[in-house]
Structures are given as structure tokens and as C-alpha cells.
Amino acid sequence: MREMLPFGPGVFAWGLVTGVAMVKSGLSIVESLGLSLLAYAGSAQLAALPLMAVFAPLWLVTLAAIIVNLRFVVYAALLRSHLGHLPANTRLWLGYFTGDVMFARFSALLAEEPDYPHRVAYFAGGATANWIIWQVSSVIGIFAAGVIPTSWGLELAGTFALLALLIPLCRQWPALGGVAVAVIVAVIAHELPLRLGLLAATLAGMTAAIALERRLRSTAT
């Protein structure tokens, strides 16, 4: 859990902003609390809000939330090899608690120490800390919606927290190349709805990184 603390302010600010956004889009306080405590989804919550405001069909709201969450399918595919031996029930809950920050920290740890013995405890502890920080800040955001102006740009604090996670992951050439491609695709695909550009950028970046890794290996030998 201590590992999560440096990211606290970023997660906190992002939760706060989501809390404020839910109330500002017309949900009641109880409904906002329900959405935050149950869905625990950040970007998917934000994507669902405008659809809910116009009473879009329920299947569309659910589908939109799944699509916004698609990057977690990629995350889960990586986690699978480290957490796959656990009982199904445990896996269900660990999956639910996977956030962007938690996932990046966990994969950084396993890159350094692939056989780290306490990795399940590490994951569970970090995920719990993340959940608590997120929920506390969301609740504060929900109740403080009238006081906090959106012009503060508080959501950027979450962006900077992700940036701090990103930099150490770029130490090798393939990762750096993949990141560059991901950024370019993200900019080009920015107009795509439901953050599909994010998924396209992730997949393109991964493909570029693996191609670069192969190229480097074949010239080295």
C-alpha cells in the first residue's frame, strides 16, 4: 500500500473531478454515490454520463462503458500469467480492482523482479489503497460539486500522476519507440468516439515496440 501513496494526490484529484462531474451532469447525490461505489470506473463513468442524461438505451450505456474499459482487457491479459493460479472468485475481484495506476506499478515491479514472492499481496494492497483514495475523493467531489469550479483544471493532476508512471517505463528503446507511435496514433485517432483512439494507440504502440525489439535483437546478434 505504501507504494501507492506517491500517486495519492493524482488519483485523489481525478476522483474529485469525477465526483464533481457526476453531480454537475444532473445525477442526485445518492445516484452519484452509487455510480462511484459500484462501477469504480473513472473514464467509463464519465463516458456514461452524457448518455444517461439523454436517456440513451441501457444496452448502449453498458456497451459504451465496456468499450471505454477495453484497455483493461489488454491489462488483464498480462496479469493473467501472474495471477492466473488464484481461485476464480479471487480473480474476479482482483480484476474489478485493477486501475491504470495499480496496473502500471505492478507491471513495473514484475519487470524488475519476475518472481517476487509477495506479488499477490502487493497487488491486493495497492488495489485496496487505490480504491479507498478514489472513493474518498469521489465522495468529497460529489458533496463539494457546488464549490469547486471546473476551471481549476484539477483533472490534470491525474494526468501528471500517469506521466510519472510512464517515464520510468521508457528506459529501453522498444518501449520508447512504442510510446512515440502510441502518441502519434492517439493524436490522429483523437476524434474517434468512446476513447477507441486510446485502444488503437495502445495496440499500434505495442506492435511497433515488438517490431523494434526484434529488429534490435537481430542486428545485435
Binding site: 494526468t159 500517469l162 506521466l163 510512464l166 483523437h190 499500434a204 515496440a209
Partner: peptide, 23 residues
């Protein structure tokens, strides 16, 4: 190939999110 490409998933996903927010 897919398994080893997944190691680059966090960096690429984070980069895409950050680029959307900052650029």
C-alpha cells in the same frame, strides 16, 4: 508474440492517455 507485446501495453496505454490530455 502477443505475450511479449503485452509487456509494452502499460507504457503505450499511459502514453496515449497522457497525449490526449496534454496535446
Amino acid at each position: 508474440t502477443v505475450e511479449s507485446a503485452l509487456r509494452y501495453a502499460p507504457a503505450c496505454a499511459l502514453a496515449a492517455i497522457v497525449a490526449n490530455d496534454l496535446l
